[in-house]
Design a protein around this nucleic acid. Structure first.
Lengths: 213, 213
DNA sequence: CGTGCTTTTGAATAGTATCAAGGCCGGTGG
DNA sequence: CCACCGGCCTTGATACTATTCAAAAGCACG
């Protein structure tokens, strides 16, 4: 995505430390954000403050776009590691839209794809078993935060509870499933990091839910 | 939504009978559709061809926008009653985007809101009980297809299975829940139509999942 | 007046969340 | 250096919920 370059002259970036919020659910929309460098989780609160991770974001990804056209952000964003964030205020954004229709179309295509992915996730949540949900969460982590080429290590430190918040289940179930997967030699853990031994097996188990291939 | 007027000069409409597909999941994207008059369900196939309704659409709503920027539609659309559909092909659409930036921005805002709604639904699916899911599905039906003013009748003929496909549960559970709600005097059924007796009660039960109020 | 489809209801089963206890590890303070 | 503490992870037992299967009733249709 080359949006960052297009708006680079107006950049207004800041540092965000691990665990620190970038913007808070329900707060007023000031503009949108891009991640220069870092890892961010986008969350939404449910009943009894149970939180659900609706998206994971990586370098170059956009944040806060759900607030566009609304007064407040429907979701919150929290840095999962020290991150460098670029902020673009509403005025700059609107100017860019009118001056550069192709930029607008590009952003619209991004929305279209996000919508597509999100609706696919609804299917997963309503039809998968707990085991499948956990596997899908791991698969999602693998896709978003590339495995380090050499050792298939998931390059992120993430708690069981956070995996559960992605999968839509409990930390207990995540732990059980990971234990099972270790016994089946599908993955291994080392110092809080997850090592994928058999990504093919993971793919097969959730494969039935994907459209086509 | 006044998009229809803006593109009215290029209109290309056709009739679609109940149960008939408007476009099919996985088929090539030709353009987008608007509903002049009718009721449409947007569905996505899951494992073992279990289908999930991701959205219900009514007069004036847009269809097929998920395909934008992709080769094939990720979802399918089927008429739930005889409907009049307006089709706009890709070329016309692209011309309109470049010629009319405000139209593009308007459509982008629509995407933003759809994304917002869809992500909220993920929360429902991962945290609600079966009873709550059914109530939410009824609530969704009420919001989308206005209750006929006089008698609080849901103006749509819909099977238990279809309600289950919205709620993400089974037809059995829908039947049980509806029976319970009848005993609780919350609703009643009459000749396949659902009559809401106590919409306040319905709202209260799913209320805890909504952001703010 | 059958035939087939949907709805309803019951019973058995499987799956999941919850609760509780124990283990592991890192940090803190004596 | 050791003891303690708190957080996170793991694992077992339990209770509950939901799905599945099966059967019967209702209904539309030819």
């Amino acid at each position: 995505m080359d949006w960052i370059e297009k708006i680079n002259n107006r950049k207004n970036s800041f540092q965000c430390k691990k665990g620190q919020p970038i913007f808070i659910e329900g707060s007023a929309v000031m503009g949108i954000y891009f991640i220069y460098q870092g890892k961010v989780k986008v969350t939404i609160r449910g009943a009894n403050n149970k939180q659900q991770i609706v998206r994971l974001a990586n370098n170059g990804h956009i944040l806060g776009h759900r607030g566009f056209g609304n007064e407040s952000y429907p979701v919150g964003a929290v840095a999962m590691e020290d991150s460098l964030i670029c902020f673009i205020d509403n005025n700059t954004l609107n100017e860019t839209f009118l001056a550069n229709p192709e930029f607008t179309i590009g952003l619209m295509m991004f929305y279209s794809q996000e919508l597509r992915k999100t609706e696919a996730r609804i299917k997963y949540f309503s039809q998968m078993t707990a085991r499948e949900k956990v596997i899908y969460a791991l698969y999602y982590l693998m896709e978003t935060y590339d495995l380090s080429a050499k050792k298939n290590i998931l390059d992120i430190i993430i708690s069981r509870q956070e995996i559960a918040d992605i999968a839509g289940t409990t930390a207990d179930q995540v732990s059980r499933t990971i234990t099972d997967l270790k016994k089946e030699k599908v993955l291994n853990t080392d110092e809080k990091k997850i090592i994928i031994l058999n990504s093919q097996k993971l793919r097969e188990e959730v494969h039935a839910y994907f459209p086509l291939n």
